[in-house]
């Protein structure tokens, strides 16, 4: 899923400074699962903003609504009844796709991102997420024991480990495991070192961001 986290409250406050009517919009997709922008997080942010406004003696209304998803036009359409209520600012608690879709659908509205979108990853434990995919557009993890060196090696090396690998840890930080150490260890333990040995060719990055912003058209699905 897409992993995101809420922006610092000060930054969010700066977006809505002087505004009287604010709508906080959540998303029931990835950001609900990673506890960044679901119904609960919308409630918490809206409550904090109301408390802040009350404390300052400002008369500010902060409403809440959570959409099924903010990356599909049909759900974005559902917000029309709220937009009709004329908000001075709309805070999207989706990944960055959400505020972009909202801005396109409601061009006259003042839309702000309330989250920072961090990476594509998974939960290692409740409350701990780690990056696992970089959306390079050409998955090759089967060659590396089911691990992705494109994402999880700091240098995206196709033939690792590099000289910076020490004790299973990457040279950039003691907090970062060397994925190449894990890949090599897995092959060794399984006695398949010969499968590990082949030199991998230079990766074709044309399917990645190097080819510019990407788009997929599936004719069989297009109406």
């Amino acid at each position: 899923m897409i992993i995101a986290e809420r922006k610092p409250i000060d930054e969010i406050k700066s977006f809505i400074e002087g505004q009287k009517k604010v709508l906080v919009v959540g998303c029931r997709g990835c950001v609900t699962v990673c506890n960044a922008g679901g119904t609960k997080e919308v409630e918490i942010l809206a409550s904090l903003l109301r408390l802040d406004a009350q404390k300052e003696g400002h008369d500010v209304t902060v409403d809440e609504h959570t959409l099924e998803r903010q990356c599909d036009p049909e759900y974005i359409d559902e917000l029309v009844e709220f937009v009709d209520k004329k908000y001075d600012a709309i805070l999207s608690m989706a990944c960055s796709v959400g505020p972009q879709f909202l801005s396109r659908r409601y061009p006259k509205e003042n839309i702000f991102p309330a989250l920072n979108t961090n990476f594509i990853g998974g939960a290692l434990a409740h409350g701990i997420w780690a990056e696992h995919c970089q959306a390079c557009g050409n998955c090759i993890i089967h060659k590396f024991g089911g691990m992705c060196p494109v994402t999880r090696c700091s240098k995206s090396l196709m033939n690792g480990p590099c000289g910076g690998s020490a004790g299973g840890v990457c040279e950039i930080s003691k907090e970062v495991e060397c994925i190449w150490h894990l890949i090599a260890t897995k092959f060794m333990e399984e006695g398949k070192l010969e499968q590990f040995a082949p030199i991998q060719p230079i990766k074709d990055w044309s399917s990645s961001r190097d080819g510019g912003p990407r788009k997929i058209v599936r004719e069989e699905l297009v109406k």
Partner: peptide, 11 residues
């Protein structure tokens, strides 16, 4: 106990 319970109390 959830953060929102306390926030609602403060509100």
């Amino acid at each position: 106990f959830d953060v929102i319970l306390a926030l609602k109390a403060f509100e």
